[in-house]
């Protein structure tokens, strides 16, 4: 499924956070959105998945969702958003319970995604018994269980330590070719963006506007420090000044922004 963003703007009262965002995400493409903190990345993601209503512009989709899709726009959250009173399997099942599925079909889906994310042995564990990395694997398994058309990942690795992050990136890269799900990946981490994305969309500081969209034209398996160095430099120069300016700004109070709890 293709995703078309047309002139999307958003404001929280008097505070303008996004302005004139236009972007097309092709079927099976991963687009990373980066930008300084407070540039409206998470707001944009909320709008893409229909959790927030944009103040201006519109979102269009093109094409049919994949077979067996239960929830076309599916999120993976920064803080995992797991129900602490449910087991791993229960959390995955939560995304399926309100759909008309046979019990067998539900169990099959749960077992399948737990197997692909390496959680099969942890099906009965409670979230509190898991490490951060395992919790985010549950978050990913839950997202995969509904066979999404578009995955919306909101800084999925930023709550994890560096080693875990590295492990999960590798797993994600191994997993993704199987489904080739269209994905929008919001991050403030340049390396994550460069390792995963087909294209990187750089937003300016608030109000967020598209500064540049950079294609990562190195095949994923060949992406290493040396091959990406010049691209990394270019992106860093693009966001450096914005980041510095944003860092020195006073933080406004934003009500109900995606990443504010």
């Amino acid at each position: 499924m293709r995703l078309i963003v047309e002139g999307v703007g958003h404001r929280y009262g008097a505070l303008e956070v996004l302005d004139g965002i236009s972007l097309t995400v092709a079927e099976g493409e991963i687009v990373a959105v980066i930008g300084p903190s407070g540039c409206g990345k998470s707001t944009l993601l909320g709008i893409l998945g229909g959790l927030l209503e944009p103040s201006a512009g519109r979102i269009l989709t093109d094409g049919a969702p994949p077979a067996g899709c239960l929830n076309p726009f599916t999120y993976v959250f920064q803080d995992f958003a797991l129900l602490p009173w449910r087991s791993v399997a229960g959390n995955v099942a939560f995304a399926l319970e309100h759909h008309r599925l046979t019990a067998a079909e539900r169990e099959r889906r749960v077992a399948e995604v737990l197997a692909t994310t390496g959680l099969a042995d942890f099906a009965d564990a409670l979230p509190k018994q898991l490490s951060g990395g395992m919790r985010q694997r549950v978050g990913i398994a839950r997202a995969l269980a509904v066979t999404p058309a578009v995955l919306l990942l909101d800084e999925p690795l930023s709550a994890l330590d560096a080693q875990t992050r590295e492990l999960l990136i590798e797993e994600f890269l191994a997993l993704w070719p199987r489904h080739r799900t269209t994905a929008v990946y919001v991050t403030h981490n340049l390396d994550e963006a460069l390792r995963l994305a087909d294209r990187v969309c750089v937003l300016s500081r608030r109000p967020g506007r598209v500064r540049e969209i950079v294609a990562v034209d190195v095949p994923r398996p060949e992406r290493d420090g040396a091959r990406l160095a010049s691209l990394r430099d270019r992106l860093w120069r693009l966001i450096q000044d914005e980041a510095r300016a944003a860092d020195r700004e006073r933080q406004p109070e934003i009500l109900d922004a995606g990443d504010h709890r």
Binding site: N71, F77, L83, H98
Partner: peptide
């Protein structure tokens, strides 16, 4: 009850009544 859990449930199209029963009530327990 953390609002992110409610947003999560909404993002999976869980009906409002089920959100109250499965997310808010256990979270408020």
């Amino acid at each position: 009850v953390p609002r992110t859990l409610i947003r999560m449930a909404q993002s999976f199209d869980v009906p409002a009544l089920a959100i109250v029963g499965k997310v808010i009530l256990p979270g408020a327990l």
